[in-house]
Design a protein around this nucleic acid. Sequence first.
DNA 1: TAATTTGGTCAGTTATATTGACATATTAAC
DNA 2: GTTAATATGTCAATATAACTGACCAAATTA
Lengths: 145, 145
Amino acid sequence: MRDLLYLKDDQIKELIELIFFVYRETYSDPNNVLKKYSFGKAHQRVLQLVERHENISVSELLKKLKITKQSLNRVLNDLFKKKMVLQKKGQIDARQKLLKLDKEGKKLFDEIFIFQKNKIFQALKNSDADSVIKFKKVLEKMANG
Amino acid sequence: MRDLLYLKDDQIKELIELIFFVYRETYSDPNNVLKKYSFGKAHQRVLQLVERHENISVSELLKKLKITKQSLNRVLNDLFKKKMVLQKKGQIDARQKLLKLDKEGKKLFDEIFIFQKNKIFQALKNSDADSVIKFKKVLEKMANG
DNA sequence: TAATTTGGTCAGTTATATTGACATATTAAC
DNA sequence: GTTAATATGTCAATATAACTGACCAAATTA
């Protein structure tokens, strides 16, 4: 393991702690919004991934979420029932189910997004563009386990 | 809400997605290590917080974790039984139980830390110091919900 | 003394995940 | 054209980490 001389153990431990807090704050339920539909964090994550990746297939979604299809299916069926997500057959491969947000899903996504955006803006209002861009680049490097 | 002109909605959505992935990757590895003691992520988080904040009280721990004391107590009792965490009465306030890592806890913490450190080094080996420092500063701003 | 804080505990419930087994339709390979 | 692999779905049982609500004891503060 090559050493990063500017990164001491204590700083790494701090980083690890911070990542937990930031994750939790970013995803800390826009609770009241989700509870209206008896949805939880699992539904929120699916909504967000489907929004970001329109026409994503179930198996691609599974790879991103790293959960079992049984778990995903429970959540997905909830979302279908409440008209949040639409499915259509894949045109190239008819076995695939391609997913995208339905009207209700877009509404709910936006409602959640407003909370998150607000929170991020509050946090970053005094940060310069360079910092935020570098922040995102480092995040990208760390995201691909 | 003041606008951050350099941050478009799509970039914020990307950020939110990345934060999820980074959290998961940072906290996912040490599973085999934890399973040896039938511990889970909940135990890991307590270990890490107690390591970072020696002599933390139960109520401070609760504030950081944002879970109920019933949840924490289950985890904490597991850790006591396996000699991972030590408690001592607060000297100023005898109601308080101050927590720190026991010998076994230090060993387990280190085992987990090696995984996480390795992963972070892999991710950041081509990043300059400035990026990583700015990354951490932005994280700090975002961590205080 | 009375109220508050710190911590613990019992019991029941919910949300999200797991494993394993099995089923169906579609596509790819031989 | 049969066989194998892929994409998806479903039933059932289990685990984990959280929750709510009720209640208790000891120590500190007002």
